[in-house]
Write a protein that binds this DNA or RNA. Structure first.
Length: 814
DNA sequence: TCATCTGACTTTCGG
DNA sequence: TCCGAAAGTCAG
């Protein structure tokens, strides 16, 4: 196919023009009836009918094992009638945890960690065994603890203004005649004021807990469960609900409703504790002991063998990490933390749901609103009511998570949740805690230089336009170009693209490019925009994100509908890759060169004794497309040209010139063309079963239909690439965390590129590890994934991100 | 009346 | 072509 033929399609409705054979194949797969209808989708979230529906669909999906729909074989569809009834009710913590551990990321992804699962399982069995023996014993212990707690609260020390431990007047006050029960219901126990024996007992309770529900408490008194305002307050401590084991009660499982079942999940031996994480004066011996104990509790929580439920678990891990101190490889201690996060679960179920609050989720999935006593009473609120609220919310959080777990299983998202999204939580937390150094001095210099250049360009623009106007205003520019100068009339054949909604003449880059020969203004505007973008976003924007000479992005795990990560403050994923050349402003002109090149990525520098190492997949999306479509030409392309760049190969074929004559611009053009075709042509789940609800496909509306189909394809390809990239992160992270010597830190993920900071001496060893892991991803047996096309991995290293040199593979690497 | 905030819109960077 | 973040203008 000639390149020109494809170029002609761009800007037109791809659906109406002839599609490539790949696109056609995928479209026909889509039309075979597996599209998720939004109506069905809504119904399935409301009721449990989905199980029946899935079962009904099974023969349809398995009919064509080679099609894209073959994931049915590992989906949730094969549910026995027994398991269906089980799933429609809430799962117990035990059930969830057995499930999590059986899908533990280590076991499925890191071969050498296989024993870990069995150890976990053994521990689980042992725990069960011990539980029976300790029943009486435990009861005795808790009695002691309770007594202690009460004596504590009468001491003047504990009635601190932050955390009063006075008895609250909760509703069960009257119905319980036992003093012990009352002491533990909805009452926070500040672990600082326990004596040594009680601390020992508490550790034991933690070890034996059936489940933990945690939330951060902030200085302003709010928690993660209620922070509608922008969070400025720092972490003060951690509130934790320790759930004890309940007698297995089969009747509670068969109950499909959650409202009434809430109380059933809790019993009187559940404990609420508070762990302070701030304000330790380390010259005070007593506070040193308190600090140590808090540390032990949190470390124990991290490697807890029961589920830890937390809303926004990443922030919890971050807080713990900051408490532990981020030096000497402390981050490795959070590596195998598994926290169940309802927000992530909800996002998997409906990725288009924009960042829901805890309240939103409770309303959506439990169908009730949270009664907030602190809001109805203005003015002075009793601290005990606040505490009580936290405790109630922790219970609700537990129920919410159990409900979401059941739903994840029903929708076939459980494996994705456990193997990909949950292990990512501590990884992102560690990434956020790591600071990337930035060359501040250089940035300030560049900022001044760019500012001067912008002034020059502004003056030039005003001069050639013959009037003053705001260059950054598209409205004013539109008026000048098309109102005053009437450039669109100078060329009759010119097609004037218009803006999306208002249908006004566009002033986009493409338009300005086409107007370049008619007037000097468009060219000046183009340069102004380029310089302005660099200055405002990459230089000044980055400077605004800096703290003590370094930056650290905030990573959002639930911000996209395709499953990709996103980053902000700064958005490190969006920083220009290619350096730009600008002509020097007059005031900066010396005797030397007239131009200066600026590479925004080069401003990120590795810390002393360390090197940046970047590992990226090459054209992973196209390779996945080749695999999923099975298109012979596409497959051949990747199987043959193992070493040569695919876009260069395509360009040389289309233009009929040797590969070495392909210019950068040609290659970029090809890339544009290829992705236009790719995204013009799917299925609605990624290779890992990630799903996206599509707008209802309406046969009458060609445009909407075409858009939905493009979204579908985009989702499959992008989502699958995101799956593989996340898997790479998890496996590499786990490998480093379990290594006694390696210290490499994951710094950023730019979709198909992973950026690490590595000790200089470990570069080649680490590079070999990374290459091995990334290349092994084309064959992940536990996921029944076997790509027909090889994955290609590029490695590069250097002292700054913008200046990385290709890295040869370490000789004779394992 | 003035300052500030918010949302819609456009553009440009990444993949 | 899709998916993002960010920065800017402008009207309300």
């Amino acid at each position: 196919v000639k390149m020109e033929d494809y170029e002609a399609f761009i800007g037109f409705d791809l659906y109406e023009t002839a599609l490539s054979s790949v696109a056609q194949k995928i479209l026909s797969a889509m039309r075979s009836g597996d599209l998720v209808d939004s109506k069905n989708w809504e119904e399935s979230t409301k009721t449990t009918k989905v199980t029946a529906k899935d079962k009904k669909n099974q023969p349809l999906e398995t009919k064509n094992p080679n099609s894209l729909t073959s994931r049915a074989s590992r989906g949730p569809i094969k549910l026995s009638s027994q398991s269906v009834t089980q799933l429609t009710g809430q799962m117990s913590a035990d059930q969830v945890w057995k499930s999590v551990t059986s899908l533990a990321p280590c076991s499925s992804l890191i071969p050498q960690c296989n024993q870990k699962t069995s150890v976990l399982q053994q521990m689980e069995q042992k725990r069960k065994h011990c539980l029976k023996e300790n029943m009486n014993n435990e009861h005795e212990q808790s009695m002691n603890l309770k007594r202690k707690n009460i004596t504590c609260s009468s001491s003047p020390e504990t009635t601190s203004k932050h955390m009063p431990l006075e008895k609250d007047s909760c509703e069960d006050d009257t119905c319980l005649n036992s003093e012990d029960s009352r002491a533990f219901r909805n009452q926070l126990c500040d672990v600082r004021y326990l004596d040594d024996l009680s601390k020992l007992q508490l550790m034991e309770v933690l070890n034996q807990a059936a489940g933990l529900v945690v939330t951060l408490l902030y200085k302003d008194g709010s928690t993660q469960l209620r922070d509608n305002q922008a969070r400025t307050s720092s972490v003060k401590g951690i509130v934790m609900l320790l759930k004890s084991h309940i007698e297995e009660d089969s009747s509670s499982l068969s109950s499909p409703t959650c409202g009434g079942a809430l109380e059933k999940n809790f019993n009187s031996t559940d404990r609420y504790i508070y762990i302070q994480t701030e304000h330790f004066f380390l010259w005070d011996q007593e506070q040193v002991a308190q600090h140590l104990f808090a540390r032990r509790m949190l470390l124990q929580t991290l490697k807890c063998k029961c589920p830890v439920i937390c809303f926004n678990a990443k922030n919890f891990v971050k807080a713990v990490l900051q408490f532990l101190g981020d030096d000497h490889g402390n981050w490795k201690q959070v590596a195998d933390f598994v926290g169940l996060d309802p927000r992530i679960a909800a996002w998997l179920i409906d990725p288009s749901d924009a960042i829901p609050s805890f309240e939103d989720l409770v309303a959506k999935y439990l169908g009730k609103s949270i009664v907030d006593k602190t809001r109805s009473t203005c003015g002075n609120i009793s601290q005990s009511i606040v505490n009580q609220n936290v405790c109630v919310n922790l219970k609700i959080l537990y129920s919410l998570m159990m409900d979401l777990c059941s739903k994840l299983k029903v929708y076939g998202l459980w494996q994705l949740f456990c193997t990909l999204e949950l292990p990512l939580i501590p990884i992102l937390a560690v990434m956020e805690n790591h600071k990337i150094q930035v060359n501040q001095e250089e940035m300030e210099k560049i900022s001044a230089l760019l500012g001067a250049r912008l002034k020059e360009l502004e003056q030039e623009a005003h001069f050639v336009a013959g009037e003053q106007f705001l260059i950054t205003s598209n409205n004013q520019l539109r008026e000048v170009l098309f109102g005053k100068l009437k450039l669109h009339l100078r060329n009759q054949r010119m097609h004037l693209p218009r803006t999306g909604l208002h249908q006004q003449p566009s002033t986009s880059e493409a338009v300005l490019n086409s107007l370049q020969d008619l007037h000097p203004l468009p060219k000046i505007i183009l340069e102004y925009r380029q310089v302005h973008k660099i200055k405002s976003t990459f230089i000044d924007g980055l400077l605004a994100c800096m703290k003590k000479g370094s930056v650290s992005s905030t990573w959002n795990q639930t911000g996209t509908v395709t499953g990709r990560l996103s980053a902000k403050h700064p958005n490190i994923q969006g920083i220009s890759k290619h350096p730009i050349q600008i002509s020097k402003p007059q005031t900066f002109k010396g005797k030397e060169e007239e131009t200066v090149t600026i590479s925004p990525r080069a401003l990120f520098v590795s810390s002393k004794g360390h090197t940046f190492l970047a590992a990226d997949f090459s054209q992973i999306e196209l390779r996945i497309l080749a695999h999923l479509s099975g298109d012979p030409e596409l497959l051949k392309l990747f199987q043959e040209s193992d070493r040569v760049d695919v876009f260069s190969t395509l360009t040389s074929q289309w233009k009929n010139i040797p590969v070495k004559h392909v210019t950068h611009a040609d290659r970029e053009q090809t890339k544009k063309v290829v992705y236009s075709v790719v995204y013009g042509a799917g299925y609605v789940t990624s290779i890992m079963g990630r799903r996206r609800p599509l707008p209802r496909i309406c046969a009458q509306n060609q445009q909407l239909r075409a858009q939905a189909e493009r979204q579908a394809v985009n989702f499959v390809v992008q989502g699958s690439a995101a799956d593989l990239c996340k898997m790479a992160m998890i496996r590499i992270f786990a490998a480093v965390a379990t290594s006694p010597t390696l210290t490499a830190r994951l710094v950023a993920q730019i979709h198909d590129e992973l950026l690490f900071e590595v000790e200089d001496t470990q570069v080649s060893e680490f590079a070999a590890l990374v290459r091995g892991i990334m290349e092994s991803l084309q064959q992940v047996q536990t996921l029944e994934l076997q790509l027909q096309v090889p994955l290609k991995v590029n490695l590069s290293a250097g002292p700054s991100w913008g200046d990385l040199a290709p890295l040869q593979e370490a000789p004779n690497s394992a």
